[in-house]
Amino acid sequence: MTRVYDIDHKVKKATIGHTWYTPAVWGKVHNKACKWLLLHYLFDTLGLMRVDFKVASQNIRSQRAVMKIGAVPEGILRRYTLRNDGTPTDTHFFSILGDEWPEKKIKLQQMVESLAPAH
């Protein structure tokens, strides 16, 4: 599962996140294909100029995953949110901008194709 949220048509931006996959598909094509479809829709259909990703500080796997699909690290907001146990945690911000998308789109498509199971 993954979601698009905080869509702002005036500023032409949105956030992708709240992504959860079963460990059986980690590192496989599922996340990359899903992100390609979402990013394609947001940039190429809706005409957004920015898509960002917010990742909890302790979630190193997700930080690596968003960078692997082409998102650029922007910074860390300290004590931005709370963990499930109520303790504060930092949040890492990443983004892809509209003018970066055409090149990143090709690279992400190539990753998806290389990981897709043969039929």
Rank of each mutant, 00 (worst) to 15 (best):
V11K: 09
L115Q: 08
L38T: 08
D90V: 05
F53E: 04
L77H: 15
M111P: 02
C34G: 14
L42S: 03
K32A: 10
R64F: 03
F53V: 02
Q58V: 13
V55S: 07
A24V: 11
M1C: 12
M1F: 13
L108Y: 03
R78G: 07
K105E: 11
K105F: 01
A14K: 02
P102S: 01
P23E: 12
G98C: 01
W20S: 15
R3L: 06
R64V: 04
S95Y: 01
T22L: 14
D6W: 09
L48S: 01
R78W: 07
G70Y: 00
L115F: 04
Y41R: 13
A14S: 09
T15C: 14
V4A: 12
K35M: 05
T89Y: 07
P23F: 06
G75C: 13
K13E: 13
V112T: 05
M111I: 11
L46S: 06
H30F: 11
N84S: 13
T15D: 15
W20H: 13
D90W: 06
K105I: 01
F93L: 10
L82G: 05
I106M: 06
L39H: 02
L39I: 03
L115M: 10
W36M: 12
V51Q: 00
L39N: 04
V112E: 04
N59I: 06
T2M: 12
T81R: 11
V72A: 10
L77S: 12
V51A: 01
P117W: 13
I76A: 08
M111C: 07
P117E: 14
V4R: 05
A56D: 15
L37C: 09
Y41L: 06
F94A: 05
H40T: 15
L46G: 06
Y41T: 09
F43S: 00
V51T: 02
K68I: 02
I69K: 00
R50E: 02
W101G: 00
Y21Q: 10
K54Q: 12
N84V: 13
K104C: 01
W36N: 06
T45Q: 14
C34T: 14
V72Y: 09
I69D: 02
M1H: 14
S114E: 11
V29G: 03
T19H: 10
R83I: 05
S114V: 01
S114Q: 10
V25H: 08
W26K: 05
R78M: 07
K32W: 05
G27E: 02
G47L: 05
W101K: 00
I69P: 02
D90G: 04
Y21D: 06
H18V: 11
Y80N: 14
A14D: 03
T45A: 11
D8I: 05
G47V: 04
T81E: 14
R64A: 11
R61L: 02
K107D: 09
G17H: 08
L77C: 15
R83E: 10
T45W: 08
Q63W: 07
Y5L: 10
I16F: 03
D6G: 10
E113N: 12
G98T: 01
Y41N: 09
L39C: 08
D90M: 06
I7M: 14
V66A: 03
T22N: 15
